[in-house]
């Protein structure tokens, strides 16, 4: 199996990581969330008269709790992706072993999820 795409993606990630290490060690950037920045811009445009019309019903009490919930979100997603890829891969292998090899579409696929 060709691994060309994997190598390209890896290269992109490495360049990006290198850039990050370089930038974070040579500048004093804060790496705050871009999603939080419009507040400052809105304040500037409205001369500080801006008031949000609503407040979140519940806020994570600390940065740790927030990371926990973001981490949980990623973990749930990664788990689902891993589960189904593993399921499909194993299914494909066993079907090939059982003699379905050569057919383009194994019949069994149609009725199962």
């Amino acid at each position: 199996m060709s691994r060309k795409l994997e190598l390209i993606v890896l290269a992109v990630l490495l360049i990006f990581t290198a850039q990050f290490f370089y930038m974070s060690s040579t500048t004093d950037a804060e790496y705050g969330g871009a999603d939080d920045m419009p507040e400052g811009v809105i304040g500037e445009i409205t001369d500080g008269t801006f008031e949000p019309i609503a407040k979140p019903i519940w806020e994570p009490p600390s940065g740790e709790i927030e990371s926990l919930l973001f981490g949980l979100q990623a973990a749930i997603g990664a788990g689902v992706i891993g589960y189904f890829f593993g399921y499909y891969r194993a299914k494909k292998n066993y079907e090939n072993e059982l003699g379905y090899k050569g057919k383009n579409k194994p019949e069994g696929d149609k009725n199962s999820i």
């Binding site: 981490g71 979100q73 990623a74 749930i76 997603g77 990664a78 788990g79 689902v80 992706i81 189904f84």
Partner: peptide, 12 residues
């Protein structure tokens, strides 16, 4: 599920 999970992971 995979498409939804991918959104879950990346947007977090």
């Amino acid at each position: 599920a995979v498409a939804g999970a991918f959104i879950f992971v990346l947007s977090s």
